[in-house]
């Protein structure tokens, strides 16, 4: 029984069709994104399902999760707020931006807000050096850039995400 295949059969077939039939292993990264979109992180169950689809060992799949920074093996908040503080961004005030944002949110980089919505991260170069301070939001299977930010505009983005989550919960209730 493969829960991932049961749920996303067509999408998995589309992914596998990109690669030669004898190279199902190439699908491991897109399948991890698919599983993470569904659960918010990579569950033990997803590791097993993906290993079966790609015809590789569970250890092989887990090693991919460990190697690449955009996969998570535990739930760390629905939205990952990822702030770049590499050299060009630091020259445009990104370190101060992160410090102030961290203070306003009341969480340190590496921590998750108590409501489980936001995980703050200091990350490496995002390829937006000319528009720093910059952060990306990784969550709900998407990665969205926010450039030329101030603490105020960043908080507005975060507030909009909070509102989005609140409305969803309200709709479900």
């Amino acid at each position: 029984m493969n829960a991932l295949r049961d749920q996303y059969g067509q999408e998995i077939d589309r992914i596998l069709a990109k690669y030669p039939a004898e190279w199902k292993r190439s699908a491991v990264m897109p399948l991890l994104y698919l599983a993470q979109r569904a659960e918010g992180y990579i569950t033990a169950r997803a590791l097993r399902d993906i290993a079966e689809i790609c015809e590789i060992s569970i250890t092989d799949v887990a090693s991919i999760v460990g190697f690449y920074t955009l996969y998570y093996d535990q739930p760390l908040g629905r939205y990952h707020i990822q702030v770049c503080t590499d050299l060009p961004c630091a020259l445009r005030g990104a370190e101060e931006f992160l410090a102030q944002l961290s203070q306003k949110l009341g969480i340190q980089p590496g921590q998750t807000s108590t409501d489980g919505l936001f995980h703050l991260e200091q990350v490496m170069c995002l390829g937006a050096c000319h528009r720093a301070p910059v952060f990306q939001v990784q969550g709900d299977g998407e990665i969205v850039f926010h450039e030329n930010q101030s603490v105020e505009t960043a908080l507005a983005v975060i507030e909009a995400l909070r509102e989005h989550a609140r409305q969803e919960t309200g709709g479900a209730a």
Binding site: K18, P30, T69, L70, M124, C125
Partner: peptide, 10 residues
């Protein structure tokens, strides 16, 4: 043509 996404590794 096919796109393929990495996952955060310089």
């Amino acid at each position: 043509l096919y796109t393929h996404l990495g996952a955060g590794a310089y």
